[in-house]
Amino acid sequence: MRNLSSLKQEFLKRWIKGLRKYNSQKKDMNLLERKKAIKLSADLAMASTKDKTTLWRKAFIANTSTNIDEQDISTSPSQKQKKIAKKNLTNSCRLYRKTIIGSRKISRRNRVKERVDASFIATKLVKKRTRTLKSLLPGGKFMDDACLVDETLDYIQSLKAQVEVMRCLVTASELFINPPIIDFII
């Protein structure tokens, strides 16, 4: 694992480079556009500072490249449709599962059923959480469990570094724009 400060430094360099690129592309932006550009460049910079072996980095870069290629407006309806279709699918699956489980439950004794229920609920909870975690991580859909935990570790670390650097920059720019009063002499 690399040194955290060197990581931050690398991140800042890349970030600024990306920002400059954006700045040269487009001059006048409103607030949201600026924010988007800043965030995207920061994320990209963070991803590019990482080793090439990490999965989420690859996934993130791939995602952003596809997003830049396609327009947001054109993709959003199709995505919605897909989501709806997925929901329908999952609902039907759930129903199916429920029926199966119900039939199983009937065949077993009470005590056994309770125990099985508890463990089943626990595994279900864990599975649910893993799914949400997968949705949070870039490229999490394609990871197995062990890989997921690993990547989460990596991701959290890089996010932490990113947040720290950004916070530093925010305070620095605030100080720069509203310079503190320095005429005060004791």
């Binding site: 700045n23 607030l31 996010l159 932490k160 920059l169």
Partner: peptide, 27 residues
């Protein structure tokens, strides 16, 4: 862990917003 990751992502969002608000120009 999920909460933490989410909060970090939100922080990034927030900080970028703040940066955008503070700086009228991008660089």
């Amino acid at each position: 862990i999920i909460n933490y990751v989410q909060s970090l992502q939100r922080q990034v969002e927030f900080l970028s917003m703040k940066l955008a608000a503070v700086n009228p120009r991008l660089d």
